[in-house]
C-alpha cells in the first residue's frame, strides 16, 4: 500500500475543502472496502480524508421516516431497538452484512457511496425509496444508483445521512456467497405507508434494480403465494463461477418469497 497524507476533519465543510485541495484524494469511512482495495494496489490516493471525525453516527426514528447518519456502523443499525420496530427489514439486513467484525467498522454511508453490485444496503435504499442526504443536496434513491460501483455523487460530495420512509411492512432475504458473505442474490420487499409495493434486487445484476413483475403480483396480494410461478428473466443478469444468470433469476423469486414471509 502506497503512503498518503491523512487528515480527519471535524466538519463536513472542512472535509470537502480538504478533498478539493488534494491531488488524488479519497474519503475513508469504515475502511472495509477502501483499505482492502488499497492493499491490493487497485488505488493509490495521495490523500485520505477520514470522515470518522464528523461523528455523524446515529439512528433517529420519527413517525414517518428514519434518518441514519452516514457514519453509523452496520452493528449500530442492526442493534437499534427503535429501528427494529419501525423498519425490521432494514435492521435485519444490517445484521446480515459480512461478519461481526466487519459490522463493527463498516458504515451505511460507505456502503452506499461504494454501491457494490452485491452489497446489501442498496436493496433497502431502493426498496424503500430512501433519500440520500449529501453535503450539497438530497438525492432520491431512484436517481442515486447509476450502475456498477457508480452513483450520482459528484467530485467531493459527501453522503451525510440516509432517510428511509417508515413502511407498513418490510423484509429482506439474501442468499450469501458463502466465501465473501456478499449477496449472490438479495431481495428487499416493502409495503409502503400508501399501500404501494416495492421490490429491489441486489447481487443479481450489474447494479441494484426493481423487479416490476414481482411488484405487480405483490400489489394485488402481499403474500409469498402470490409469487408462485412468477419468473424473472435471466437476460442481463450476472453469470460467474458462483452462479449462472438462470440460477440467479430463479433465486430472485425464491428470495422474494422468503422476504415476504419474513416481512413485518
Amino acid at each position: 500500500m502506497e503512503n498518503f497524507n491523512y487528515v480527519r476533519p471535524a466538519k463536513v465543510a472542512d472535509a470537502v475543502k480538504a478533498m478539493k485541495k488534494a491531488k488524488d484524494g479519497k474519503y475513508l469511512a469504515g475502511g472495509h472496502t477502501l483499505l482492502p482495495t488499497l492493499k491490493q494496489g487497485l488505488a493509490a490516493p495521495t490523500d485520505i480524508v477520514d470522515l470518522s471525525g464528523l461523528k455523524n453516527a446515529g439512528v433517529k426514528v420519527g413517525a414517518k421516516s428514519v434518518t441514519i447518519g452516514a457514519g453509523t456502523t452496520h452493528a449500530e443499525v442492526a442493534g437499534s431497538k427503535d429501528l427494529r420496530k419501525a423498519i425490521p427489514g432494514l435492521a435485519k439486513l444490517a445484521g446480515g452484512i459480512g461478519d461481526p467484525h466487519v459490522r463493527h467498522r463498516g458504515t451505511i454511508g460507505g456502503s452506499l457511496a461504494n454501491n457494490d453490485p452485491a452489497a446489501d444496503y442498496p436493496a433497502a435504499a431502493l426498496g424503500l425509496g430512501a433519500t440520500i442526504h449529501t453535503s450539497d443536496r438530497k438525492i432520491p434513491a431512484e436517481k442515486y444508483f447509476t450502475g456498477m460501483f457508480s452513483t450520482a455523487l459528484k467530485g467531493s460530495e459527501i453522503v451525510t445521512a440516509v432517510e428511509f420512509p417508515v413502511p407498513k411492512k418490510s423484509g429482506y432475504a439474501k442468499f450469501p456467497n458463502p466465501a465473501s458473505l456478499y449477496a449472490m442474490v438479495g431481495v428487499f420487499v416493502a409495503q409502503l405507508a400508501d399501500g404501494s409495493v416495492r421490490v429491489a434486487v441486489t447481487g443479481a445484476g450489474p447494479g441494484v434494480f426493481r423487479a416490476p413483475e414481482l411488484e405487480a403480483a405483490l400489489a394485488k396480494n402481499f403474500s409469498a403465494k402470490a409469487l408462485d410461478g412468477i419468473a424473472v428473466k435471466a437476460k442481463g443478469l450476472n453469470s460467474d463461477m458462483h452462479a449462472s444468470a438462470e440460477y440467479r433469476a430463479h433465486l430472485i423469486t425464491v428470495m422474494a418469497k422468503r422476504a415476504v414471509e419474513a416481512a413485518k
Binding site: G31, L35, P36, H101, H104, R105
Partner: peptide, 8 residues
Amino acid sequence: AVKSCTAL
C-alpha cells in the same frame, strides 16, 4: 472486535 489489518 475489529480486524486490525483493516484499520489505520
